[in-house]
Amino acid sequence: MNAAVLAVLAAQVVVALALTPLLIGVMRQVRTRLEGRAGPGVWQPWRDTVKLLAKEPLRAAGSSWVLWLAPAALVVSSVMVVALIPLIATPALPLLPADLFVVVSVLLVGTVALALLGLESGTAFGGMGSSRHMMIAALVEPTVLIAVYALSIPAATSSLGTIIASRLTDVTAVMTPAGLLAIVALFVVVLAECGRLPVDNPATHLELTMVHEAMILESGGRDLAWLELGSWLRLTALLGLVVNLAAPWGIATEPTPAGLAVGVAAFSVKLLAAGAGIAAAEVFLAKLRLFRVPELLAGSFVLAFLAVTASYLVA
């Protein structure tokens, strides 16, 4: 059983790694096309990553081990998250469950690694980006916890695999008010956490407005490739979690080859469709004033909180 589960986890990592640059490519291409431009095609992030991985990283004189450790920590934490979150199958290792609290903690490792990297670069932009990043993270983490907690109440467990499996067996659970509130709350914080509009503009060149980009401004070569890939993997993981909670259909409950194949196909379709949807919505969005971001995130926290309340009322 454990060997099969390990194979599932490995498959999740491979699928996520393969799918992530494509997800970013699809999102960029959708936005580009909707804005009336031709665009470089959906494979450009793949090409960029391969190119950057072949380049030596340049690190400033006087910088410390943080500059090489942070990209590694980010990528490792992101890979762990995509392994733990049930993306294509729900079975989990008994000693390392896809527990809600474990997942959020591992995510936080990557968040802190990025913030330290921004500070270590020694420029004012890095520090500024880190401070904004931590402000957003501090508002995002509780909402993630509470939103998933609301979904865990009907299933009576904090294991994400079990929650998703229970939603799969009981279709009515997906469409409860509590479930919808929690999904919306989760969706908003995923946008914030992954630096999408209206919280951060991934396409800007204006250093002073950046959040995520400001932290990685001084990185280059392999370091940059790992940082980009690590950040993109977080989007895959969190967006994957949201789509699997909102529409669990297709996910494999048993680690059989046929089930996994269906799981991979269903997950790819759901993830890319969700990404394309976000990109399409971004065309119609602008970036919020920085001091309004907490209002947006507080709103999503309220939704998550209402979801918890509703779950108890229903249950």
Partner: peptide, 16 residues
């Protein structure tokens, strides 16, 4: 100007 608030579609139209 509006591109600096992340409303890129207006910039694309104006550039055209």
């Amino acid at each position: 100007i509006v591109n600096d608030v992340g409303y890129g579609i207006a910039k694309n139209h104006c550039d055209a």
